[in-house]
Every structure is written in C-alpha cells, then in structure tokens.
Design a protein around this nucleic acid. Structure first.
Length: 721
DNA sequence: TTGTTCCAGCTTTTT
DNA sequence: GCTGGAACAA
C-alpha cells in the first residue's frame, strides 16, 4: 500500500496533523471536523510510513464504542490485524495492566471490578456498619466524595487528620471503604485509574517496560481526561515526544464528573515543544448552523479559539418555536417529524435532544399516540438490570467467596428464609473477626450460633454456592451461566413473577447465557485469568446497550450529553429555557454556565441540515406550573440565521414585530416572560408572551382570577411585582 | 416475608 | 407530581 491512501483523503490541516514529526501534538478538532479520521490516519501513518509495529501503538478513548470504532477503522484502512495494538478505554486498559501486574499493584490475582451501583450498595452497607445515619451522610454524596478524591489521586491516608466534623468523618468512611474493598477483593472504577497511576509511579521497571513498548500514544477526547488520567499519560510519555492528543475545549461537558478542561490548556505549558493544530473545516452542518454555534461559543472566556467553517453553503434557516406549554412543544415537534417522514425522510435521521431525561415523556407520549416508532437512549443497560446482577452475583461468589457485595446481594434472593436479622448477625460476626461475610457465615454454622431455621436456610445457601461451583468446574462458560440461572432458583423466581415484567426478566437471563456463549475469551488477551473472571470483568467494564433493536428505523430521543459524537439530518433542541437549559443548578456559577454553553454548542453542531430550537412559555416543574424565560443561548444566536415559527392563531403582527429579530424581541422589553405583574382591575398575573415594539408592544398575561388577557402596554397600567 | 404507605428528592453519565 | 426506596404493619 502506498502513502497516498493515508494522505489523500485529508485536508491540509488534517494532513499536517497526521504527518507531523515526533513531538507532543495537540489537535484541536472542532465538531464534525474529522477528528476520528485524523486519529485513525495518524496511527496508520505511524505503522505504514514510520515503520512502527502495531505492537508499539497505544490509543485511549473514553467509551467502548469509540474504541471499537477506532479499531475497526484502522483495520479497514490498513487491512492488517489489530489485536497487537492497545486500543481501548482508560478503564479497559487500566484493567488489563492491573491483571498483568496484580502483585505489583498490591491486588489479589482474582480482584473484580464493581460498577457504580455496586459501589453505592457497598457504601450503604458500610454506613450501616459504622452506625451512621444515611439522612445525615447521604451515600450518594459519599460516593461522589470518594471518587472525587481518587480522581485527584488522593487516598484516605493522605487526608489531614484534623479538620471539621465533615472532614474527619469522611476520612473515617474513606478509610473503612478502602479496607472493605481490599477484604472483598473489589475495586471501583476510580480505583482502576488510581492503581495504575501508582503502579507506574512506584515500579520504575514496569514504567520503563511500557515506555519502551508504547512508542506512540494517542488520546481521543482529551478535554474529558481527569487529573489522574492525564497524570498517567504524562508518566508513560515522560521524556519522549510521542503524545498525540485530539480534543475540543468547546466540547468539554463532563466537568461535573471530574474531567479537567484545564488539561487541554495546560498541555501547552507542560509540553513547551508541542505543536498545536486546529481542525476548523466542518463537513457536517450548513453555514447557518455553524454560524449559530460559533456565535454561541464565542461568549465563553479563555477558549483556545476556533471558528468552524464550511464550503457547503448557508442551508436552511434555523427554526425557532415558542410553545405554549410542554404538550404543545411535543405536538409541534411530532408534527414536523411526521411531515419529514411523509416527504420520504428517514426516522433514523431525526433526533430530539433535551437537557434532562424527564423531558422525554411528553415526546414519547405524542410519538406513541401518533404511531411514530422511536427509541429513547439512556436508562438501564443490559448488565445493570437487577436480574442480571443477581445472576452475576452468584457467579462472582463462585469465583470469590469473599465478595461481600455479592454475598449480600443474593443471600436471600430468591427468598430462602434468611431475614434481615440473620444477615445483621453475620455482618456483626464478620466485623468482629475482620473476615468476609462468607467466612463468618461458615463459622456461625459451625459454632451453632444461629436458630435452627436460620441455620438451615443459611447452610442451604452456602451449599448451593458450593454445589454450583463444583458442578460447573468443567463446563464451558455459557454452561456455567446456564447452571447458575437454573439452579439458583432465579429462573423459578421470575417465572412466578406475576408483575408482567417477569417474562422480560426471563428473556434477559436467557440473553445472559447467550452473551456468555458469544464472549470471546481469546479476544480479551489474557490467559492468566479464568474465563469466568474475564467475563465478569467484561460485564462490569462494558455495561452493554440498553436496547438491541438499533436497526429499526426510528426517531432518536436522548439527552444532549449522550448526543455527543453523533449527527442527524434533522435535530430538535427542545426545552430551551432558563432553569432547564441552562439548568437551575448552573445559573449562579459562571464556570458551570460555560459548561452549559458548551453543551448547547454540542447540541447545535449535531445537526446536519435542519435545526429546530424550541422553548415553552409554561412548563410543569415538580408538579408546579412555571413560566420560564427563554434560554439566554437563544439570544446569542445571530438573528439572520433564525426564523420564528408560529402555528397558533396569529395575533395581528405589527410590521415592527415581524421585522425585529425574533430572538431580540425576547429580551428588549421591560417585561420578561414569567414576570409577575399587577393590574388595577384584573389583579395579579404572569406575563406569558410579548409582541411588538414601543407603542405597539403588547403582552399576554395570565391573571390569577381573570384568566388570559392580551393588553397593549401603552394603555394598560401594569405594575411590576 | 410481603405488601403497603410514606417520604425525600429531583441535571447531565461512562467506566 | 412522580418515582423509587425505606420504614412499617400484618
């Protein structure tokens, strides 16, 4: 193959990035500018032109999906096998490293990964053990605290001993948490990253080995890295010019879960010899859409700075729709969707994007009643489902009896007469002796420390696990899973589940057996670990898709966050209201507001051809009617790229109002939507709509007693409240 | 042990 | 105003 296949499909900036000589490289890749393409071609360049072996390539992403896509595209471009390349997520790679160096990382060989819900349960148990009140010490907050510390590389022992009550208590909890994890052989997601950092930092020979192996290190979505991830990237590339990162500071939307946008800014400081390359040509959207995106993001401070452009023309205007309420919003959107479809458009090309999941309901209902197929992203993933987690808990216990989290999970599922009291007793003994629940249970049965019935029930459970374990020793993985599902009683339990979901759960359990059958042990690349353990790790690290039917042609509903990286011909960005988007919690914090703005930028740049922005003049929020103001982001979009859509009966528009920037009209009146006013005759009310300018200005007011009224401002005596 | 009632909480999500 | 989880009663 010659170099032209790698280089020819690229534009100048892309080519510069792909063929750049060895030095730290930061590619600032705007939305739709071909960032994955650059990464893939860069890897190909390293192998094809620079003569590196695939063995010497490391490429890190955040999601399994991105990793898979990168691998398959490299494979397609180079037409060589890619197993030797380390392409994976930060967590996946961390897992692999820890498996290989378990001893050096001070981990038991059979350690297992727990996901966030496992972690939360563990914390709840811990609190109970410490006799702490959950109301006073919310488990979620503790989880957030511990993960936050780990993301910054801080262990419990590093925390100062003094401090206020909160700090002292958190330290105690964090210490106890680490101890419990260690005893159970469990590590959480943040721990995966932290351990790898410590492994590389404290074992020079290990670090040297990987520095020599990974001659080129590629990072996707660099703006989403947290402190510890960046720290290990720097360790791996110390003293070499082999770090190639791709990212977009304008698309950093995960600050709230530890991502440090500063990393992308500090890159230039940390690597003075770096080269910065900007990809600004956009191959996705129309000129109008890009103009809106550029103008919005320009309101953020401290950007590295980037202007997207396209040679594809202006395209259609962006449509702005002011709905009366959220039903009206859904009605409007679905009507537009129906006409798109009736004109021959694909449903797959349509997305409804919202800030918070709760907003999906209106749209779902409307789509349902009109019979338009749709798919909601988010929600429970396959391996997150209770029935699946139960089955996995049995499997985990078979692999490691001391996995307390799994023990607690299924000791009485299905119910076998082991009540809270018994479990409490076991916990107590376990804590007293500093042993696992399993060991404590065995001891208690041996020493007759339980009442007859509880004793039998508990012995039954222990025997069941031993029995399952013995029975499945020589079976293939999927047969093991099958045995567990059938003999644990789970199958029976869900069969008798009359609450309609039972059938679905049975199907899921069958699907689990199937997943085990399809699980490719060889692909996991480890041979020092049992297939079962690898499968369990796989289940934790890759939660699976929420739905299987992605091949159907249906409208896509998702949050703005989950839309990142995707594109659609027709996009509806709904709920553009202050307090919703930007969200209430972000309104008083400039940093968070900027992140919301980036989220808006992400949303807008998902659209390829047509973009609809919607806001509602009234919306039910927590059961109460609210009258939010239109989102500030609407005002940041240039007027000439927008057209206002009105479906409702027209109130005679004054010429001034028609000509005026529809977005500007939202802001220039002395009244704001939602403003509370008082009228001498009608009493108190709330402003719902504003139309016209100057002497023509009129407002629609919803009066408490008198109902809806249109009033000319020039005549009506209104007082602001 | 199960079914019911009660009550807090309520952005975003991957690993 | 709805939901999920925890506390409570039978």
């Amino acid at each position: 193959m010659d170099v032209s296949t790698i280089i020819n499909p690229l534009n100048d900036a892309q080519r510069e990035a792909v063929s750049a000589p060895d030095r730290p490289i930061l590619v600032l890749a705007g939305a739709g500018s071909g960032k994955t393409r650059v990464l893939v071609h860069r890897i190909a360049w390293q192998i094809q032109v620079m003569g590196l072996s695939p063995h010497n390539i490391l490429a890190v992403t955040f999601t399994n999906k991105a990793a898979k896509e990168m691998r398959s595209r490299v494979e397609a471009l180079l037409n060589i096998p890619t197993q030797a390349m380390w392409i994976g997520t930060f967590h996946g790679l961390a897992h692999r490293l820890l498996r290989r160096h378990a001893r050096q990382a001070n981990l038991p060989e059979t350690f297992q990964v727990m996901d966030s819900s496992d972690q939360l349960r563990l914390i709840k148990r811990l609190l109970a053990g410490l006799s702490l009140d959950e109301a006073q010490w919310p488990p979620k907050q503790i989880q957030w605290y511990i993960n936050g510390q780990k993301d910054e590389g801080v262990r419990a022992k590093h925390l100062p001993e003094g401090g206020d009550m909160f700090q002292r208590q958190m330290r105690v909890i964090y210490l106890a948490y680490e101890e419990l994890c260690e005893r159970s052989g469990l590590i959480d997601f943040a721990e995966l990253l932290l351990r790898v950092h410590e492994l590389l930092r404290d074992n020079p020979e290990v670090l040297a080995f990987y520095q020599l192996r990974f001659l080129q290190v590629h990072v996707d979505e660099f703006q989403d890295t947290n402190t510890i991830q960046y720290a290990w990237l720097r360790l791996l590339t110390t003293g070499r010019d082999n770090l190639f990162v791709v990212g977009d500071d304008d698309q950093s939307i995960y600050g709230w879960r530890g991502a440090r946008i500063e990393n992308i800014y500090n890159f230039q400081k940390h690597f003075p010899s770096h080269q910065l390359i900007k990809l600004e040509q956009n191959y996705r959207s129309t000129g109008n859409i890009l103009s809106a995106a550029n103008h919005i993001i320009a309101n953020n401070d401290g950007r590295l700075g980037k202007q997207l452009w396209t040679d594809a023309g202006q395209g259609d205007l962006i449509s702005l729709y002011a709905a009366f309420n959220e039903q009206d919003e859904a009605y409007f959107v679905v009507e537009r969707i129906r006409s798109w479809i009736s004109e021959g458009g694909l449903r797959n090309d349509i997305a409804i994007l919202y800030r918070s999941n709760a907003q999906s309901r209106q749209f779902e209902e409307r789509l349902m009643t009109t019979g338009v197929p749709y798919r909601v992203y988010g929600g429970l993933r396959f391996f997150d489902r209770a029935e699946i987690k139960n089955a996995l808990a049995y499997l985990r216990l078979m692999s490691n009896r001391h996995d307390d989290a799994s023990f607690e999970r299924v000791v009485n599922v299905p119910t076998r007469g082991i009540g809270l009291k018994t479990v409490d007793d076991i916990r107590l003994v376990a804590r007293e002796h500093g042993v696992s629940l399993w060991t404590a249970a065995v001891e208690m049965i041996g020493h007759n420390r339980l009442s007859g019935r509880a004793r039998n029930a508990l012995a039954g459970f222990l025997n069941l696990v031993e029995h399952l374990s013995a029975l499945s020793v020589d079976l293939a993985l999927f047969e093991k899973v099958k045995v567990v599902v059938e003999l644990s009683g789970l199958l029976e339990l869900y069969k008798n589940d009359k609450l309609e979901r039972g059938e679905e759960k049975l199907e899921n359990l069958e699907e689990l057996v199937n997943a085990a059958r399809l699980f490719d042990y060889a692909e996991s690349g480890e041979d020092n670990l049992s297939e079962l353990d690898m499968f369990l790790a796989h289940a934790a690290l890759e939660a699976g898709d929420a739905q299987a039917d992605e091949f159907d042609d249906c409208v896509q509903l998702m949050t703005l966050h989950s839309a990142k990286g995707l594109e659609f011909k027709l996009v509806f960005l709904v709920g553009m209201e202050e307090g919703l988007f930007p969200s209430m919690q972000s309104l008083d914090d400039p940093k968070r507001l900027e992140e919301e703005r980036r989220l808006c930028y992400v949303g807008i740049t998902r659209a390829r051809r047509q973009l609809y922005l919607c806001y509602s003049e009234s919306r039910k929020l927590y059961g109460r009617e609210s009258y939010p103001r239109p989102s500030r982001f609407l005002r940041e979009i240039p007027a000439e790229t927008i057209q206002e859509v009105r479906l409702r009966a027209q109130i005679s528009h004054s010429p001034a109002a028609v000509k005026a920037n529809p977005a500007a009209a939202l802001s220039e009146s002395k009244f704001k939507l939602g403003q509370r006013v008082s009228h001498e005759k009608f009493g108190e009310g709330v402003v719902l709509q504003i139309e016209g300018d100057g002497s023509q200005e009129k407002v629609q007011i919803n009066f408490k007693d008198a109902g809806l009224k249109w009033l000319m401002l020039a005549y009506a005596k209104l007082e602001l409240l």
